[in-house]
Amino acid sequence: MALHVAHNLARDAHALGKRDEARVLWSDTLERRRRVLGAHHPETLRTERKLHESTSTSTENI
């Protein structure tokens, strides 16, 4: 549950325009999800995708 909340907190920070904060939160969440769930778990991959999207030059909503 805590990892899900951390992911959503990053998403909310991103939506509020706090992109640097969101990246830090997603990065931390990704590291913990890899350790707890494994690198190929769907939730780990979702966080990895969001982190990648947040660092790209795209202006799309995440």
Rank of each mutant, 00 (worst) to 15 (best):
D12F: 06
R11M: 01
T44I: 09
L16F: 08
S27Q: 15
A39T: 09
P42G: 09
H52G: 10
A15V: 06
R49C: 07
E48T: 05
A2S: 07
W26A: 11
R19C: 06
V24Q: 13
S27G: 14
L45A: 09
D20W: 10
N8G: 01
L37K: 10
E53P: 02
K50N: 15
H52V: 11
E43N: 08
L51N: 06
R46D: 12
D28T: 15
A2K: 01
L9T: 08
R35N: 13
T57E: 14
T44S: 05
A10E: 06
P42I: 05
H40K: 08
K50P: 02
H4Q: 05
N61S: 14
H7R: 14
V24Y: 07
R32C: 02
L16T: 10
R23T: 05
A13I: 00
S27H: 14
T29M: 02
A13P: 00
H4P: 02
E53C: 15
R35Y: 08
R49L: 13
E60Y: 06
D28W: 14
H4G: 03
T57M: 11
H7Y: 12
R34L: 03
K50L: 09
T55V: 10
H41P: 07
E43H: 05
R32K: 14
T47W: 00
R35W: 12
H41L: 05
R11S: 01
R32A: 09
R35M: 10
D28S: 10
E60D: 13
N8M: 10
A6E: 01
A13G: 00
T59Y: 05
L3N: 03
W26V: 12
A10F: 04
T55M: 12
L30A: 08
K50V: 03
R23A: 11
A39R: 12
R32H: 03
T55W: 09
L3E: 04
S54L: 03
T44K: 01
T47N: 04
T47M: 02
T55K: 14
T57Y: 06
G17D: 05
D12E: 14
E21D: 11
L37H: 12
E60R: 15
E48G: 02
V36F: 12
E31C: 02
L45P: 07
L37F: 12
R49H: 12
K50S: 13
E21C: 03
L51R: 01
R23V: 12
H52T: 13
R23Y: 00
A13H: 14
R49V: 07
H4N: 03
V24E: 11
A2V: 04
E53V: 08
G17N: 12
A15C: 00
L30V: 06
R49Y: 15
D20C: 04
T44P: 03
R11Y: 04
R11Q: 01
H7G: 01
D12R: 06
H14C: 03
I62V: 15
R34P: 00
E53T: 07
H40Y: 09
T29H: 00
R46G: 06
H4I: 07
R19W: 07
A2Y: 05
R49W: 07
S27R: 15
E21W: 11
A2D: 05
R34Q: 09
T59C: 15
L30H: 08
L51V: 15
L30G: 01
